[in-house]
Design a protein around this nucleic acid. Structure first.
Lengths: 100, 100
DNA sequence: CCTCAATGTTATGTTGAGATAACATAAGGC
DNA sequence: GCCTTATGTTATCTCAACATAACATTGAGG
């Protein structure tokens, strides 16, 4: 029960992919869900949720699991196709809509 | 109040980086937090939490925000340094500890 | 195969995430 | 500088995520 949550297909698919990758990484390392759970400070059941792509899991738990598997480095670096230019310092601190 | 949550430094840092990247992407697109929140089906406050790297946010919300900014594609594809080889099909379905 | 550990599944209680709302502050365009 | 509005901040309430626990199933190895 507890149908995971309503989400756009593309988004859900991406989470399932991430979950699959995490599971593969875990099995490659021959680690049980229990062990990874302990290392990440969570439970076996939550690991299962992550590996199944359940969107209702805190990102902090995801990150802890990635770290437990040695997959964390550079994870937060998403490259933006839109922004070849402009770093945070060069951007306005606020967005302003058209007729403001 | 509400100190975000206890986490390893590296993990926290990675989340802050992700949040920064999301903020930059939003500002580049000249979108207000309010607009992004609507598109992602959440609230302005939660967008703020994400951009500040708060680990206590559901990953589903993160994904929805990434999608709202056009940053979703390929996000779930993390490359595992350990596994040059072996796909999911070739792996045992369960991990088995040493003296099993 | 036969065993046992790893995983699936379900139930329950607690705690905090997140929605909602209201007010304060400050950035940006004019 | 003004004025508008994006964002910061705080408070309250609800509901579900997560931990815990107990039982069922199934795969990996000997």
């Amino acid at each position: 029960m507890a149908v995971p949550i309503k989400m756009p297909r593309a988004a859900r698919k991406e989470l399932v992919t991430l979950g699959d990758n995490i599971r593969v990484a875990r099995l490659r390392r021959k680690l049980t869900a229990e062990i990874v759970a302990q290392r990440a400070g969570t439970t076996r059941q939550t690991i299962a949720k992550i590996e199944s792509g359940n969107p209702a899991v805190k990102i902090g738990t995801y990150v802890a699991v990635l770290q437990a598997l040695g997959l964390l480095k550079g994870w937060g670096d998403l490259d933006d196709p839109v922004g070849e230019q402009m770093a945070l310092d060069d951007l306005p601190q606020r967005a302003r809509l058209k007729n403001g």
